[in-house]
Design a protein around this nucleic acid. Structure first.
Lengths: 220, 220
DNA sequence: ACCAATACGACACATCCATGCGGTTGATTG
DNA sequence: CAATCAACCGCATGGATGTGTCGTATTGGT
């Protein structure tokens, strides 16, 4: 929580958007909305980053396709110096890659540029209130990421036992067979036994391959 | 797209909820909403699964804490037989684990039980329309998952070279030193050389540990 | 011109791994 | 009760790995 927001009730929103028309339109919209103010707007992340520590915004409306530093990189940079600031993407990109890059970088919401003014104001309120505004289709993509990762790497019908998972986990920590045996209170030969079964089930022939595959499948 | 939904404009919503009062209240709400119908409701996943293939619902309102099979397991089961069906969670649980399990299992949205009737009806429309309705705080948790995974594992200042990354990648595919050498057109001993450097930089002493660590750091 | 970093190559050797074979025990399930 | 399965244990062996030490070549930077 920064000092400014304690002392006033308005939410400071700044804009990073290279298109001047859009930028000015947004500024007007924000300024005409009760509870919001727009103390500054920028046409590049570099400009924004130069001032962000004096302006201390509560929320940043961020474009992606910008001259110089991309909006994605801008998120990382600004959250490096102002970890509490909220970043709301407002862009034309609706492809998975951009969406996930932005969210991984720390954006708290993602809107597309044809969003109606009223919805945008509402979304800013949502973000400030602890939510993550997204368009319907983007929300579905985000949620869909989990159900696809739930399937993970189309597991070809193999199941691994708890014990085998433990063994793999120990191997991934760099333990040798005998160390794994000590850790799990079994003999080296039993470790071998389990690893044989793991290799057979996963159709691999080395520790590294087994560990890598297991990690991609979310087993360890 | 199932046959039924082609021939009528109403959305079939069924309910799985063990509390009779809530179940009946929801049924009334759905039936009184234009465009929605509620042909059936169940107090357990088992009951629902027995009829779902004849009822052919468009959407399922699903609780989690149920007698017998949990709602989470119910999602997996029902999507096994009806992959197109939408599942909207309606539960009291708001902890990360339940949320992510449900989404991984294939739920398309997640609401909590104190949701207002009007919002619930709206959410059903959103889900049918290709969205993923969630409460604000749950949306933030979902998005927060990405930003935390984006950080990966705090890297203790080490960098590996492109060549070293290639080597690790080959090892993770299960290739032996000589196979890696063949793949990258270098000798086995050079592979050894690179692996020595990798081990030194990462402070590990086995392939598995190196591969696991590299994957957690997003290097491969 | 020199230094540091990177990539490449070679030899040696103790240890570890992958895989073959053979077993026993207990719990679950048809 | 027989069958299955997970977990447990042992032994043998060729080949792979981890680590030591020694080189050369190229490249980018001060």
């Amino acid at each position: 929580m920064n000092k400014k927001s304690v002392h006033n009730t308005t939410t400071k929103v700044i804009i990073v958007e290279d298109n001047q028309t859009i930028r000015e339109g947004l500024t007007l919209l924000l300024e005409s909305s009760p509870g919001l103010e727009c103390p500054a707007s920028y046409e590049s992340c570099e400009d924004m980053l130069a001032e962000v520590e004096t302006v201390l915004p509560d929320l940043i409306l961020m474009d992606i396709g910008l001259p110089g530093m991309s909006g994605i990189e801008g998120i990382r940079k600004v959250r490096g110096v102002q970890p509490e600031v909220l970043v709301l993407m407002l862009t034309v990109y609706e492809d998975n890659e951009k969406i996930f890059e932005a969210l991984c970088a720390g954006a708290c919401g993602y809107l597309v540029k044809n969003t109606k003014p009223a919805r945008l104001i509402e979304a800013i309120g949502e973000a400030v209130g602890g939510g993550s505004p997204m368009t319907a289709s983007i929300a579905r993509k985000v949620v869909g990421f989990f159900s696809s990762s739930g399937k993970l790497e189309a597991v070809d019908d193999v199941k691994i036992t708890d014990r085998e998972r433990e063994i793999l986990s120990e191997l991934s920590k760099g333990n040798s067979y005998s160390q794994v045996g000590d850790a799990l209170f079994i003999s080296v030969d039993t470790v071998r036994y389990h690893i044989r079964n793991i290799y057979r089930k996963m159709q691999v022939h080395s520790q590294s391959e087994a560990v890598a595959k297991a990690m991609r499948r979310g087993w360890i």
